[in-house]
C-alpha cells in the first residue's frame, strides 16, 4: 500500500527487512560463484550451496512480503472494482485488506506450528550440511511475523475508516493503485524511503 500516514516504525521495519533480503541474495550470489569456481578448478564443493540457496529464498521472501504490501504490489484484479462508485469500492477494499491480513495471520500461525515441531524433534536437514532447521525456520517465522503485524495494522486502519464512513480516504489508501500512484512510482526515488519526510511523490505511510 502507499499507505496511511502512520506506523513509521512498521514502515522502517519492512524497508529494512527487504534490504536484508537483498543483501542475502548478493551474499548467495558470491557463495554460488565461489562454489562454481572451486568445483570446476579444484574439484572442491562446499556441499550445500543449493541448501543455503533454498533458505535464502524462503527467508528473503518472508522478509519481503511486508515491503511488497507497503507498495501495494500484491496482485489484485482491478478491472471491475475501479468502475464501481466510491461508496461501493470502500467495503470491497476493506474486505480485501481484512482477508489479506487473515491470510497473513494464518501463514504465521502455521509457520509457528512448523517451527514448533522442528524444535520438538530437533530436526536436522537430511543433507550433508545437516543444518539445524530451527535457524532458517526461525528467521522465516520472523519475516512472516513482520508481514502479519503490518497487514493487521493496515486492516484495523481500513476497518476504522470504513466504520467512520470515510470512503474516499479508504479508497485512496487501500484501493488498487491508481494512475496517480503510478506516476508517483515512476518519478519516485527509492532513496527517499529512508527519510520519511522527503519526496513529494514517494510512497508515504
Amino acid at each position: 500500500m502507499v499507505s496511511p500516514p502512520s506506523f513509521p516504525w512498521a514502515r522502517r521495519l519492512a524497508h529494512g527487512a527487504a534490504l536484508a533480503a537483498g543483501y542475502a541474495s548478493l551474499g548467495l550470489s558470491l557463495l554460488i560463484t565461489f562454489e562454481v569456481l572451486a568445483r570446476k578448478l579444484f574439484s572442491f564443493s562446499l556441499q550445500g550451496v543449493d541448501e543455503i540457496g533454498g533458505y535464502v529464498l524462503a527467508i528473503g521472501v518472508s522478509f519481503s512480503f511486508a515491503y511488497a504490501l507497503l507498495h501495494r504490489a500484491h496482485t489484485r484484479v482491478d478491472m471491475l472494482i475501479v468502475r464501481l462508485p466510491g461508496a461501493l469500492q470502500a467495503p470491497l477494499n476493506a474486505a480485501a485488506m481484512l482477508l489479506l491480513a487473515g491470510f497473513s495471520l494464518f501463514m504465521l500461525w502455521r509457520a509457528v506450528g512448523t517451527l514448533h515441531e522442528t524444535l520438538e524433534f530437533g530436526s536436522l536437514a537430511s543433507t550433508p550440511l545437516q543444518t539445524p532447521l530451527w535457524i532458517p525456520q526461525g528467521l522465516w517465522v520472523i519475516g512472516l511475523g513482520v508481514f502479519a503485524a503490518l497487514a493487521s495494522l493496515l486492516a484495523l486502519r481500513a476497518l476504522g475508516l470504513l466504520v467512520r464512513g470515510q470512503a474516499a480516504a479508504l479508497n485512496r489508501e487501500f484501493g488498487p493503485r491508481s494512475t496517480q500512484d503510478e506516476l508517483d512510482e515512476a518519478q519516485h526515488d527509492y532513496a527517499d524511503e529512508t527519510t520519511p519526510a522527503a519526496g513529494q511523490g514517494s510512497p508515504q505511510l
Partner: peptide, 10 residues
C-alpha cells in the same frame, strides 16, 4: 572417504 568430492544438487 573414497577421495571424491561430494556435490549436492536438486
Amino acid at each position: 572417504g573414497l577421495g571424491a568430492a561430494p556435490v549436492t544438487l536438486q
